Each structure stands twice: as C-alpha cells, then as structure tokens.
Amino acid sequence: MAAEEENVSQRLDKWLWAARFFKTRPLAVEAIDGGHVRVNDERVKPSRTVRPGDKLRIKKGFETWVVTVLGVNDYRRPAAEARLLYEESEHEREQREAVIEERRLHGVNIAVKKPDKRERRMIDKFKQGWES
C-alpha cells in the first residue's frame, strides 16, 4: 500500500477504482454523481478526498456495501490486496449476504435476454403446434 505520510488521502473515484468496487474510474464517477456513494452519510463529488477512517456507503446494483477506509493505493492491485484498503463490519457483511441469498432463492437474479435464433425457431415450432 502506498499510504505514506504525504499520501494519506485520495480522490474518491480513484479509491473506489483501486479498491475494485468499480471496473473503471468513469463508472465510479457515474455512481458518485448518481448518489450511489456516500462518505460519512453525505452526498459527495468524485473529487472528494477520502482518508483512513472515513465510512463509505456504496450501492451497486442490489447490493449495499458499508465499509471503513483503512488505506489508500494509487494503483489497482489484485483483489487480495484491494481488500486490505477497506474493512466491512461483520454485521453489514451478513446483512448484505442475506439479501443476496434471499434474491437467489426467489429467482430474482435470473438474467432476462432476448431469445437467440435457435430459441426463436423452437418458440415458433411450439406455437405452430398449438395452432393446428
């Protein structure tokens, strides 16, 4: 981690990217501008600096992360190293996982997509059987 004396803060969008919450910085900026990221329960701008000890609430899809910043890193490192940049309380993690499990059990995460060519032909064949 590059959390030296002179580098104890970092832009929020860059921190979210380095901590691997978002794949790119523009996606992080879009989430921040959309109000999906809060620092210490305040709506902020992407240029807001985060320091160790700040509490972040990150809504990403149906998941909500509540984490405490432990450090900063200028570079996007492997996931194992990125997890060292933040800490999620046990209660918040269990709550997030319970929501994921509930959605999985109710079949909410089933991807909806248009049928491909083969599937359309099967649907048409099925429909023709009912018309006869």
Rank of each mutant, 00 (worst) to 15 (best):
V37K: 00
E92L: 10
S132I: 13
H36M: 09
H91V: 15
K114E: 15
R38P: 08
V39E: 07
S9P: 07
G107I: 02
A19L: 03
E63Y: 09
A79T: 13
S9M: 04
I32M: 01
E97W: 08
D33V: 12
I58L: 00
Q10L: 02
Y75S: 15
E81A: 10
R11H: 06
H91N: 15
D33E: 13
L85R: 11
K114C: 15
V69D: 00
R38F: 05
R76W: 05
M122G: 14
T24G: 00
L85K: 11
E6F: 03
R121G: 02
K59M: 03
D74R: 13
E90I: 08
V44Y: 04
T64G: 01
P46S: 04
R25M: 04
N109I: 07
I110R: 13
E92W: 11
D74T: 12
L85S: 10
T49F: 15
D124E: 14
T64P: 05
A31T: 00
R51L: 05
G107D: 02
D116G: 11
V112C: 14
K14S: 01
E102F: 06
Q95W: 12
P52I: 04
E63M: 08
Q128A: 14
E94P: 14
V99Y: 01
S47D: 13
R11F: 06
V67D: 08
D74F: 13
R51V: 01
S132L: 13
N109V: 07
N109Y: 10
H106A: 07
P52F: 07
K45M: 05
A18M: 09
E97M: 09
T68H: 08
Q95A: 12
K117W: 12
K45W: 05
S47K: 13
L16Q: 00
L16I: 02
A28E: 01
D41F: 15
E119K: 13
F22T: 02
A31V: 01
W130P: 13
R51H: 06
E119P: 12
R96Q: 01
N73E: 15
V29E: 12
R120Y: 09
I32H: 02
P52W: 07
R118C: 12
I58M: 00
A28P: 01
P78S: 07
W15D: 03
M122Y: 15
G35I: 04
E97N: 10
L12Y: 03
L105Y: 08
P46A: 05
R77K: 15
Q10F: 05
V72W: 04
E119N: 13
P78D: 11
K117T: 12
N73M: 14
V50A: 03
I123S: 10
Y75A: 15
K125E: 08
T24K: 06
G61W: 07
K117I: 11
R104L: 06
G61A: 03
P52Y: 09
E5M: 06
E5A: 05
A82Y: 06
G71D: 06
T49E: 14
Y86S: 08
E88P: 09
K125L: 07
A18L: 09
D13W: 04
A28G: 03
